[in-house]
Amino acid sequence: MFTQLRPAAVMLALMTLLTGALYPLLVTGASLLLFPHQARGSLVVEEGRAVASELIGQCFSDPRVFWGRPSATTPNGCNAASSNASNLGPTNPALVDAVKARVRALREADPGNAAPIPIDLVTTSASGLDPHVSPAAALFQVPRVARLNLLEEARVRALVLAAVEPRTFGLLGEPRVNVVLLNRALQRLAHPPAHAGTNMRQ
């Protein structure tokens, strides 16, 4: 009955050392050496401080910028310290109400736009931190963003199209637009830094 107890204890200790300590340490060391940017969270650093992660969505509500996926994290949306989904079922009235409210907010922000709203723009993502929207969802917002920033629609549209990430190898995943990076590009387009602006116009 107890003959295997001692080997079990020793084996567990050895495996803990090997797979619980050495293995993660080895992966961490190799990662920081080979892929230091990715291993630390793919942070965008500006003037010495982190201003975003390329991979983590932020919640935008200002009508002058592009909005991303709604987020179901608590206590506030886009809480990257506690990822979460709505887990609402497809027939749950709460889902229908939530989508209705998001549709209303988008319509109020852009009363002139009667086009159907791409579904990903009014449904929450699985992580609550999805940085992307579909190209359709970004293009839907072009008229509003262009008008409120006093920019030509064609320029904003071109900005969106340039930001579209295609399927990997033309096959995997879905075409998408990173809203965090798109809004940073929009910022540069709408408010070009003085010295950079003169250069760009040439």
């Binding site: 996926r69 989904a85 709505s86 887990n87 609402l88 497809p90 889902l95 791409p118 579904i119 990903d120 449904t123 929450t124 993502s125 699985a126 992580s127 999805d130 992307h132 929207v133 579909s134 190209p135 359709a136 969802a137 293009l139 995943g173 879905e174 075409p175 998408r176």
Partner: peptide, 13 residues
């Protein structure tokens, strides 16, 4: 330009 379908609880990528 979009995956469409049942998008609630799914990631765009």
């Amino acid at each position: 330009e979009q995956a469409g379908g049942n998008a609630e609880g799914k990631e765009v990528r």
